[in-house]
């Protein structure tokens, strides 16, 4: 690691590296699009606030995701104060399309399936399969034990298979 690069640069590189990833995570949960962009931005700003105090961050991406997750939870609370159930519905974008319509259709089908999973399974499966985090990182993002996360991932995938097989043809 090049110690000469300053933290500001590293931070901005983090944004360039996985800003889209964070945005996607928001976009599937928050609407309208503008707000998803705003939350993405806010998450990074918060992360910087943390970084500039000299705190250590071992896994930047996981840390940003953790931050954005909390922001999304806040957003949901503000939006639906009545719902005590924290299960955010997965937003299935209609505009997943055009560049390859068949893949887009496949994407919608897959997301529909995913949306039918229970909240806690859905989140870990999404973070594992779509965002590519390892169980350890997911544990860090969600504030749980790695063990619990691993188990949940396996169960989640099993349930996904079940849902797929039992869905009407």
């Amino acid at each position: 690691m090049n110690q000469n690069t300053n933290p500001e640069e590293l931070f901005l590189k983090a944004y360039e590296g996985f800003g889209d990833s964070v945005f996607r995570h928001c976009y599937l949960r928050v609407s309208p699009r503008e707000e998803a962009v705003d939350i993405t931005q806010e998450a990074f700003m918060k992360v910087w606030d943390y970084l500039r105090t000299g705190q250590e961050v071992h896994n930047m991406k996981a840390f940003v995701f953790k931050t954005v997750n909390n922001l999304i939870i806040d957003w949901y609370r503000k939006k639906k104060p009545v719902t005590l159930d924290d299960e955010e519905a997965l937003r299935i974008p209609d505009t997943l399309h055009a560049t390859d319509p068949e893949l887009a259709a496949l994407g919608r089908e897959a997301l529909t399936l995913l949306a039918r999973l229970d909240g806690e399974y859905r989140t870990v499966v999404e973070l594992r399969i779509i965002e590519g985090f390892g169980p350890k990182e997911i544990a860090e993002i969600l504030g749980e034990t790695e063990n619990a996360v691993s188990v949940r991932i396996h169960r989640g995938i099993a349930k996904l298979r079940e849902l797929y097989e039992s869905s009407p043809e």
């Binding site: 705190q55 896994n59 994407g107």
Partner: peptide, 18 residues
């Protein structure tokens, strides 16, 4: 802030959900 690993590697073209 020290960096654990090269987390800033750029992955612009990422897989689609599906």
């Amino acid at each position: 802030a020290p960096v654990g690993y090269a987390w800033f590697a750029v992955h612009r073209f990422v897989a689609v959900v599906a």
